[in-house]
């Protein structure tokens, strides 16, 4: 039982600062992880939003893909938002040639599924398992992916509830991995980060 877990944010590219802030406000100690040495010192990791093809390439060049896969196999808790969700998916639709996934989560993700920036949107969504779940969460979707299919080991915690994409899966978790299509780190609502910190504490 870790009362104040140390949670790293993979700091190769993307919305790193926002996750560091949100984690610090959710009861964790947060730090940037850019190298293998820094990965060793953390209890859990967040893979932020950004460009999944860029983050993957940088992780590969830093020889971090395999260690990340090992960490996930060793049950290190991981939370990925947007690009992070893509990197954690076992199967990716719409990846660029040669783009690998870190994997670990039994889902099929479609990249940029909601469309281009013109289609990026905000919408209230219900998320299962967060504190005060009857209160909607402000979902910020930016060129966001969706989950085409979630395996039996995955719990679906959020779906789009209205509009043309009603019913699409946008949040999933299992015991150690949490993934969202949207960016909770871009809001001042920390309930998703709190849920992740709880997951880390329980291990």
């Amino acid at each position: 039982m870790l009362s104040v877990p140390v949670i790293g944010v993979l700091a190769l590219q993307g919305g790193v600062r926002e996750h560091l802030d949100a984690l610090a406000k959710s009861g964790a100690e947060s730090r940037s992880v850019k190298t293998l040495e820094q990965l060793v010192g953390v209890d859990a990791l967040v893979i932020p939003g950004g460009e999944s093809s860029t983050i993957e390439k940088l992780a590969r060049n830093s020889e971090m893909l395999e260690p990340l896969r090992e960490a996930i196999k060793g049950h290190m808790p991981i939370f990925g938002s947007c690009a992070g969700m893509i990197l954690l998916a076992d199967r990716v639709v719409g990846a660029i040639e040669g783009q690998e996934s870190i994997g670990g989560l039994d889902i099929t993700v479609e990249r940029n599924a909601f469309g281009r920036q013109m289609q990026s949107f905000e919408s209230g969504i219900a998320i299962a398992g967060i504190r005060d779940p009857q209160r909607d969460f402000d979902g910020v979707f930016i060129r966001a992916p969706w989950v085409l299919e979630a395996g039996t080991g995955c719990e679906v915690i959020a779906r789009i509830t209205s509009g043309p994409h009603e019913g699409r899966i946008v949040g999933v978790r299992n015991d150690t991995i949490l993934a969202t299509s949207f960016h909770p780190e871009l809001t001042a609502d920390y309930r998703v980060h709190e849920m992740f910190v709880d997951m880390v504490r329980k291990l």
Binding site: Q13, G14, G49, G50, C82, I142
Partner: peptide
């Protein structure tokens, strides 16, 4: 929205 516009730029950081 402002959040979606500025947020898009936040996701380009470090790039």
């Amino acid at each position: 929205t402002g959040r979606v516009k500025r947020g898009m730029a936040e996701m380009l950081k470090g790039g």
